[in-house]
């Protein structure tokens, strides 16, 4: 599923996300789900960038850049 993106956007959970410059991952997730990152540690959420999981320990050192596809998921009712 490839599509051409404006270079000022990332794709977050399938939707264009305006991005002027690389954004710290913790900042992005905190904006999406307030309260889900405490002291830099994700709570019940996980992230993949371009189909690769970002391990918890690597969040602090990770930024989201324009053109990247980000999935932010959590546990919901199911199964």
């Amino acid at each position: 599923m490839s599509r051409t993106l404006p270079t000022t956007h990332a794709v977050v959970n399938g939707e264009p996300y305006p991005l002027d410059s690389p954004l710290p991952l913790t900042e992005l997730v905190a904006r999406l789900v307030p309260g889900s990152v405490v002291d830099g540690v994700p709570q019940g959420v996980a992230v993949a960038i371009d189909d690769a999981v970002v391990p918890r320990g690597a969040w602090d050192a990770t930024t989201v850049g324009p053109g990247e596809r980000v999935e932010v998921v959590t546990a919901v009712q199911g199964g």
Partner: peptide, 13 residues
């Protein structure tokens, strides 16, 4: 107990 993994809902308050 099972849970499913889904995209987080956007703009939760």
């Amino acid at each position: 107990t099972t849970v499913a993994m889904r995209r987080v809902a956007r703009q939760t308050s």
